[in-house]
Amino acid sequence: MIKNIIFLGAPGVGKGTIASLLSQKTDLIHLSTGEIFRAAIRNKTKLGLELKNIVESGNYVPDEITNAIVEEKIKELNSKNINFILDGYPRTINQANFLDNLESANISKVILLTAPNEIIIQRLSKRRYCPTCSATYHLDFKPSKKINLCENDDTLLLQRKDDEEESIVRRLEVYNSETKVLVDFYKEKKILIEIEATQSPEEIVNYLLKQK
């Protein structure tokens, strides 16, 4: 089984869903930078307020902030001999170089998930969340049994600013201009596996479980 892997792909391609499912079926810890950032935003820390402005504008968090967060977490896991899935990092070539020089990372494979832009926009624009308990829903794939209310606490479900169509388009533009260069970076290292993400998460995970 592969270990210490990276999931690459545009926002909304399904990295988080597939990484979570793979984590449940293996000893890999799902390390999502997005979740770390959202926790800081919810707690309204100084960093969280800065992150909120960046995320809502559809831009990415500066590399120096992201690198520091990821390095700290990877070193913690490495000290406990715990393997991981990196979801949402690296996103730029600077981040990739930083990770490549981080001895404790020891990346074995990079999984590139691909999907047409129209599918990505449809997926992201229909996501909803509960501002009280942070539960997440999707109008098509995971609708609330209480329609527009959270199943846990009856709070009105909201759409994140970065899931509005205008912001999604901006995020895809940033991805295309900055992140796709990582594909060539990892191809040269011969550790890239490309997968069409229009398959079901279960099919993708079953395929990954057979990789070495």
Score class of each variant (00 low, 15 high):
Lys52Val: 07
Pro62Ile: 05
Glu35Leu: 15
Gly34Glu: 04
Ile54Phe: 02
His30Gln: 12
Asp27Val: 03
Gly34Ser: 10
Asn53Tyr: 04
Lys25Met: 14
Lys25Tyr: 07
Lys25Thr: 11
Leu21Pro: 13
Leu49Arg: 09
Ala39His: 08
Val55Arg: 02
Arg38His: 04
Lys46Val: 13
Val55Leu: 14
Leu51Cys: 12
Ala19Gly: 15
Lys25Pro: 04
Gly48Cys: 06
Asn53His: 07
Lys25Ala: 13
Ala19Val: 10
Ile54Ser: 08
Thr26Gly: 07
Thr33Leu: 14
Val13Ile: 04
Leu21Met: 14
Val13Cys: 06
Gly48His: 00
Thr45Met: 05
Gly58Asn: 12
Gly14Trp: 01
Glu56Lys: 08
Asp27Ile: 08
Asn59Ser: 13
Glu35Lys: 15
Asn43Gln: 10
Glu50Thr: 07
Gln24Thr: 10
Gly58Cys: 14
Ala39Ile: 12
Ser23Asn: 03
Glu56Gly: 12
Glu35Gly: 15
Glu50Val: 06
Gly48Trp: 01
Lys44Arg: 15
Ser23Trp: 04
Val55Lys: 03
Ala40Thr: 03
Val55Asn: 01
Pro62Phe: 00
Leu31Thr: 06
Leu21Phe: 06
Ile54Tyr: 00
Gly14Asp: 03
Asp27Tyr: 04
Leu28Phe: 07
Lys52Glu: 11
Ile18Lys: 03
Lys52Cys: 12
Gly12Gln: 09
Val55Gln: 01
Leu21Asp: 01
Ala39Phe: 06
Arg42Cys: 02
Gly34Met: 11
Lys44Glu: 12
Ile36Trp: 00
Val55Pro: 02
Lys15Glu: 06
Glu50Ile: 14
Arg38Trp: 00
Gly34Ile: 09
Gly16His: 06
Pro11Gly: 09
Asn43Phe: 08
Ile36Asp: 02
Asn53Leu: 05
Ala10Gln: 03
Asn43Leu: 14
Leu51Ile: 12
Pro62Leu: 11
Ile29Ala: 13
Asp27Cys: 09
Leu21Ser: 10
Gly58Phe: 07
Lys52His: 02
Leu51Phe: 06
Gln24Val: 05
Gly14Ala: 08
Lys46Trp: 01
Ile18Ser: 01
Phe37Glu: 05
Lys46Pro: 13
Phe37Ser: 03
Ile41Pro: 00
Ala19Tyr: 04
Ile36Leu: 12
Ala10Gly: 04
Gly12Ala: 11
Asn43Tyr: 02
Ile41Lys: 00
Thr33Gln: 14
Leu31Met: 15
Ile18Asn: 04
Lys52Ser: 11
Phe37Arg: 02
Pro11Asn: 10
Ile54Gln: 02
Ala39Glu: 15
Pro62Arg: 06
Lys46Gly: 05
Arg42Leu: 00
Leu22Asn: 08
Glu50Asn: 14
Gly16Asp: 06
Thr45Val: 09
Arg38Leu: 08
Leu31His: 05
Gly48Lys: 05
Leu22Lys: 10
Ser32Val: 13
Ile54Gly: 02
Asn53Ala: 12
